[in-house]
Design a protein around this nucleic acid. Structure first.
Lengths: 136, 136
DNA sequence: GCTTGACCCTATAGCCACTAGAACCTTCAT
DNA sequence: ATGAAGGTTCTAGTGGCTATAGGGTCAAGC
């Protein structure tokens, strides 16, 4: 029983938006869907799986470029998976980089939040602090 | 001794780029600079301070919109600084939100990185894992 | 005065990953 | 037959710059 989904059904069942799915088609992450006589897109379970793959990879913060690469790799069962490892590895490094940065931000913002004891701008330590060139 | 800076000198002395400074002018964060007869922008120390303020606020991850608001507030010495506090507070909350998210990403990517023991795509646990709908 | 080369100007388009809106067409239940 | 819900394409916008093209200006040295 191949029940085919309209774009709206696919969207709902994967928690994506229809516009996004169309965007993925234009961006060549999804291949062009088959159409009804009236031009509506119809999707198979396979295509749904592919969209889930994309979604999952996106949730890991991977760029569409990376996702495209992974999809290409996933299609070739015999290829070595070094490249897959590398993509994940690079992404992990990026995430750790951003974590480091965000943790610094958090500290600085926290410090700023605590330091405001004025009630007028003239006494506001936050404005004061932003006005000077700074060390952390 | 009012030594005025060209845009390039201002850029260098604040570690910004000239294009960015022009962009800030168009975006109304910097007011239009005075010009030489030939049309070159010239900046005063005051304007340099303003740019440093912007830069610092941007480094805290604030949007240009927020920075614009802060600049407006900073100009009114008598105004109460509740709004300043709020901007910083909201930003801190955003940063903490993103930290939470990134920490989850880190875990998931780390798990993926460890789990790949195949050498062909067919056995690759990463691809495998991306293919299914997931819980963390 | 003239040339050189570093610097500056504007305007336009591109980046990423969507999102919004307009104007129209299809499907399906009643 | 009608009307609502959902689909279609197309264009333009988001943020915060960055890149490129095609020119003009400035200061120093000759």
């Amino acid at each position: 029983m191949e029940s085919r989904l309209t774009i709206g059904q696919l969207a709902k069942s994967t928690e994506t938006k229809a516009v996004t799915i169309r965007y993925y088609e234009r961006a060549r992450l999804m291949s062009p869907a088959t159409r009804t006589a009236g031009g509506y897109r119809l999707y198979t379970a396979r295509e749904r799986d592919r969209l889930i793959f994309i979604k999952h990879a996106r949730q890991l913060g991977l760029s569409l470029e990376d996702v495209k690469a992974l999809l290409g790799l996933a299609d070739d069962e015999e290829a070595p998976c070094d490249r897959v490892d590398e993509i994940i590895h690079v992404q992990l490094a990026r995430v750790r980089e951003r974590l480091k940065h965000l943790r610094q931000l958090e500290q600085e913002l926290d410090r700023l939040e605590r330091c405001c004891h004025g009630d007028k701008i003239a006494d506001c330590q936050i404005i004061e602090s932003l006005s000077r060139a700074h060390g952390p």
